[in-house]
C-alpha cells in the first residue's frame, strides 16, 4: 500500500508464525512508514497480537523477515536488544515494575541501557511526567495508581527511550470505561506530534479520528486495509463487512 508518509521504518516480508498445529500468522507482508498511525483490527484470535509482537521479535517468526530501519532483525547475528530500544511497546496489562517507583520505572532503561546519568534520566522523566500530568506520582508505586494512570506511565516509560516507533496492544482493554479517554487522549497527542504508531485496538472512534491507515486481520492474514473513511464506508471483504456490522 502506498502512502505519502516518510521512509519505510518497518518492512515485513512473508511472515509466518506457527504455534504447534496452529498457523497464527499466515504470510504477512507489510510496510510501516515513518509518521504513520496504523490501527489493526480484527476478530479475537485473528493474530493481531502475534503480528504486533513479531515486529519487535517478542514473538519469534517461524518464517519470513522483519526489516527495521533497513536491517533484517530476524537475522540471528543481529543484536535484537539494540533494536528493541527503539521500538516502544505498551501492553494491555501495563506491566509496570511493581517493586520500583514511577520514577524508577521510567529511568531504569535509560540509565542502564542508554547510559544516561541519573540526573539526566530523571530530568527527562520529570518532563514526560509533566506532559501526562502525573508529576506528583513520581515517588509513588504502581499499586497506588489507577488503571488509566498506570497505562499513561507505561507509555511514558517507553517514550523515555526516545523510540522510533510505538507498538500498542489493546492499551485500553483492561481499563474501566471512565479511564479509557485519558489514555486515548495521550495517544492522540503522540500521533499529532508525529510518532510512528502501530495500534491494536477495538476503539473504533480512535481509529476513525487518528489512524492514517486501518488494517483488518483475519485468520492470520491481512484481509483488507484502507484509509479510515474508505475502511468504514466502503468495506469490500465479506468478513470485514460482517466484523463491522457487529461492532458499529
Amino acid at each position: 500500500m502506498t502512502t505519502n508518509y516518510g521512509d519505510t521504518l518497518i518492512k515485513v516480508q512473508n511472515l509466518h508464525k506457527i504455534f504447534g498445529e496452529l498457523h497464527a500468522l499466515n504470510g504477512i507482508s507489510e510496510e510501516i512508514h515513518k509518521g504513520e498511525v496504523v490501527v489493526i483490527v480484527g476478530p479475537s484470535g485473528s493474530g493481531k497480537s502475534t503480528f504486533l509482537r513479531s515486529l519487535n521479535l517478542l514473538e519469534e517468526p517461524s518464517r519470513g523477515q522483519v526489516i527495521f530501519e533497513g536491517e533484517d532483525i530476524t537475522d540471528k547475528k543481529v543484536d535484537i536488544n539494540k533494536h528493541r530500544q527503539k521500538m516502544g511497546m505498551v501492553f494491555q496489562h501495563f506491566n509496570l515494575f511493581p517493586h520500583k517507583t514511577i520514577l524508577q520505572n521510567i529511568t531504569l532503561a535509560p540509565v542502564k541501557l542508554l547510559k544516561k546519568s541519573r540526573e539526566e534520566a530523571e530530568r527527562r522523566a520529570t518532563e514526560l511526567l509533566r506532559l501526562v500530568g502525573l508529576e506528583e506520582k513520581a515517588h509513588a508505586y504502581p499499586s497506588q495508581l489507577s488503571g488509566g494512570q498506570k497505562q499513561r506511565i507505561a507509555i511514558v516509560r517507553s517514550l523515555a527511550m526516545d523510540p522510533e516507533v510505538m507498538l500498542f496492544d489493546e492499551p485500553t482493554s483492561a481499563l474501566d470505561p471512565e479511564m479509557v479517554g485519558e489514555v486515548l487522549e495521550l495517544m492522540k497527542k503522540l500521533a499529532r506530534d508525529g510518532m510512528t504508531m502501530v495500534v491494536v485496538t477495538h476503539e473504533m472512534g480512535f481509529a476513525k479520528e487518528v489512524a492514517t491507515r486501518i488494517i483488518f486481520m483475519d485468520e492470520g492474514q491481512i484481509k483488507e486495509q484502507a484509509k479510515p473513511s474508505e475502511f468504514f464506508e466502503n468495506p469490500k471483504d465479506e468478513r470485514l463487512k460482517e466484523f463491522l456490522s457487529k461492532i458499529l
Partner: peptide, 21 residues
Amino acid sequence: DSGQFEAGRSLGFNYVQTMRY
C-alpha cells in the same frame, strides 16, 4: 508475571539484565 519479563525485553534489556533488574 510473564508480562514483567516481556516488558523488560521490550525495553531492550537482554535476558540476564531482565532477570537481574
